[in-house]
């Protein structure tokens, strides 16, 4: 039973992380389309936020695994 809960939790984490990454990516695309000259800066900021989110999701996955 515990494994089932763990798997459900892992699924929820992945859903949450996916929504977050989608939001970041989508908004960054919009921003780049609006201001193509700032693409570099937007991309860097996007990657940082993406990495922070990913770290959170991975952390939760690792904690949930045990």
């Amino acid at each position: 039973m515990e494994t089932a809960y763990n798997l459900i939790g892992a699924g929820l984490i992945v859903i949450g992380g996916g929504i977050g990454l989608g939001q970041i990516g989508g908004k960054a695309m919009e921003a780049i389309a609006r201001q193509p000259e700032a693409a570099g800066k937007i991309q860097t900021a996007m990657i940082i936020i993406g990495a922070l989110l990913e770290g959170l999701a991975f952390g939760a996955l690792l904690l949930g695994k045990n």
Binding site: L52, E54, G55, L56, G59, L61, L62
Partner: peptide
């Protein structure tokens, strides 16, 4: 630092 280490390791 925890998120730094977990991110690299897990990726």
């Amino acid at each position: 630092p925890f998120s730094l280490l977990v991110r690299l390791f897990a990726n």
